[in-house]
């Protein structure tokens, strides 16, 4: 299972980024190989429109099955995410990535649209 996190940094102790489309980084944790990798998403900062769907495309390309984030994706991003089998968990915006993962494992995060 590949789990994606929206985050402010690139390791387990980084703060989560509550935003989806404009998140600084996306962290990917592969539960099978226990590898943590990241993708720098800051290039979207200059773009005015459509960053949500673009970020969704990146999740798709990396084969993420679970997304853990803060506020949850907006309408356009949600439209794009509908195309993939992805479980979205929200409300982790104030946590570190590690805390968010633990909260997810304990079933403490709400499932978003």
């Amino acid at each position: 299972m590949i789990i994606a996190f929206t985050s402010k940094g690139t390791d387990w102790d980084s703060k989560m980024d509550p935003r989806f489309g404009r998140t600084d980084y996306i962290l990917f944790y592969n539960e099978d190989t226990q590898e943590l990798s990241h993708l720098d998403n800051r290039e979207v900062a200059d773009q005015a429109h459509g960053v949500g769907p673009k970020t969704a495309q990146k999740l798709f390309e990396r084969g993420a099955q679970v997304l853990i984030t803060g506020n949850g994706p907006g309408g356009n991003a949600a439209e794009a995410l509908k195309q993939m089998e992805l479980k979205i968990f929200v409300g982790a915006g104030e946590m570190t990535v590690r805390e968010a993962y633990e909260a997810y494992q304990r079933g403490q995060l709400a499932q978003g649209a």
Binding site: V51, P53, K54, A56, Q57, E79
Partner: peptide, 13 residues
């Protein structure tokens, strides 16, 4: 970002 390639699907927004 109005045209997305999602696997084998092209999504137009």
């Amino acid at each position: 970002n109005a045209v997305l390639k999602l696997g084998k699907h092209i999504l137009v927004m």
